[in-house]
């Protein structure tokens, strides 16, 4: 199945919490190298979908395939080793460690110590945190902690990167840099980006998937999505772009 260029596919993916169905029978698929945007109102199931993909939640039913392999029964660290990286909604970083240590821990997973040191310095430059190398991550501003997490994820050189609201808490300047960075990353990896910032989505989007009440409402290009009355009703209408 990997030959058909599909990097990620879910079949009937469902996540129930008691009576609440957060993700409901989702059939999702995307190609290698694709940059997919995921939008939808709060509570639509976007973050839960991500958590099912990385096995932070065990899906109630359904299957997940990554590059042709069934990864439904893999656990979190095994999925990470297959090459799926995730930047979580609330930055998940090592707050008590320095920026360097954070990135290094990611680099050291894949490389020997000396190489890890080199890569760490490279990544720190790339995400523009050279001035804060030795600072504790917990003491950084929210936007900077986002950069640290992006750096951690990039260091692992994943084949598929899940970004959950990457621009939250960033200044206009930083959003611009993130846009650049995402385009750059996309040359090496497929991406799924969850965002609420429509300007940002417009800047990066190729294909957009709209989630609503745990299901895929529609999948199309950004232009068509913007003109889709159904989408406007559930989502854009409230926020008037």
């Amino acid at each position: 199945m990997a030959e058909d260029g599909i990097i990620l596919e879910t079949r009937g993916l469902t996540m129930r919490f008691g009576g609440v169905v957060a993700v409901n029978n989702v059939d999702f698929s995307m190609k290698e190298g694709e940059l997919r945007c995921l939008i939808g109102p709060n509570g639509a199931g976007k973050s839960t979908f991500f958590k099912c993909l990385t096995r932070q939640y065990k899906p109630s039913t359904g299957q997940v395939f990554f590059r042709g392999a069934d990864i439904t029964s893999d656990i979190t660290f095994q999925i990470a080793r297959r090459g799926i990286g995730i930047k979580t909604q609330v930055p998940s970083v090592f707050d008590g460690l320095s920026v360097h240590e954070n990135i290094w821990l990611s680099a050291r997973r894949h490389h020997k110590t000396r190489e890890a040191n080199r890569i760490t310095d490279q990544i720190i430059e790339r995400v523009g945190l050279g001035h804060a190398t030795k600072k504790l991550v917990g003491q950084l501003a929210h936007g900077e902690r986002q950069w640290v997490e992006l750096g951690i994820v990039l260091t692992g050189e994943p084949k598929l990167i899940l970004l959950d609201e990457p621009t939250a808490g960033m200044t206009g300047d930083e959003v611009g840099r993130t846009t650049e960075l995402i385009r750059e990353i996309n040359r090496q990896a497929a991406l799924i980006v969850v965002e609420h910032d429509m300007q940002f989505i417009k800047a990066i989007a190729q294909k957009v998937t709209v989630f609503h009440q745990g299901q895929i409402l529609v999948e199309d290009t950004m232009i068509n999505i913007m003109n889709n009355q159904q989408v406007r009703d559930v989502y854009l209408g409230k926020h008037s772009v």
């Binding site: 979190t76 995730i86 990611s106 951690i152």
Partner: peptide, 24 residues
């Protein structure tokens, strides 16, 4: 050592350590 650093990292943020591919 590298082992010790990962140990401290696991204590710091178990989820992130796992998401990096460490078997906590």
């Amino acid at each position: 050592s590298t082992f010790g650093r990962v140990v401290v990292a696991v204590k710091e943020n178990e989820l992130r350590a796992e998401l990096l591919g460490y078997d906590v």
